[in-house]
């Protein structure tokens, strides 16, 4: 089975999803990521989904779970590079991605995580810009 690579860059784990994930791959990624966070002790995770053009409820839920697990392990998750079509579809589908922060690209995502470290408790101050709530 294919695996999504997890790269460590400084204090951040970078996950770039380049394929349409099967459910098993998504679940595997969730496990891998948790393990790497514990092993490396990083405080930030960036998930790049710019190559992903289908995000259905399962993938959305998986991303949310990853974010929650990471937070429990003291790491902030930022999902970057979501395509407009994906965003629209998510909204139409009525899916919210609770607890997930988003940025337009990797660069902005890194900046966002950097600012969090500077600020100490950024999640309270910065409201999630793309969080979708159940409509």
């Amino acid at each position: 089975m294919e695996r999504v690579p997890v790269l460590k860059i400084g204090d951040i784990l970078l996950v770039s999803i380049q394929i349409d994930m099967e459910d098993q791959v998504a679940l595997q990624l969730q496990e891998d990521l948790a393990e790497r966070i514990v092993a490396t002790g990083v405080h930030g995770v960036i998930i790049d989904i710019s190559a992903l053009d289908i995000v259905d409820s399962f993938v959305g839920r998986t991303l949310a779970t990853i974010a929650s697990v990471s937070r429990v392990l003291d790491a902030e998750t930022v999902v970057v590079g979501m395509r407009p079509a994906v965003a629209i579809t998510l909204v139409e589908l009525g899916l919210s991605l609770p607890g997930i922060r988003t940025a337009l690209n990797v660069e902005l995502g890194i900046a966002m995580l950097g600012s969090r470290e500077d600020d100490g408790e950024p999640e309270d101050d910065e409201p999630d810009p793309v969080v979708v709530t159940e409509s």
């Binding site: 289908i54 259905d56 079509a85 589908l93």
Partner: peptide
């Protein structure tokens, strides 16, 4: 869902609708 996207693309649906069709199929 991959197939759905491929069908949608082939018959001429726009990119946004391809994603919609694929996601709907998945759901």
């Amino acid at each position: 869902r991959q197939l759905g996207r491929e069908v949608a693309r082939t018959v001429g649906l726009e990119s946004q609708d391809q994603t919609r069709m694929a996601t709907a199929l998945s759901e």
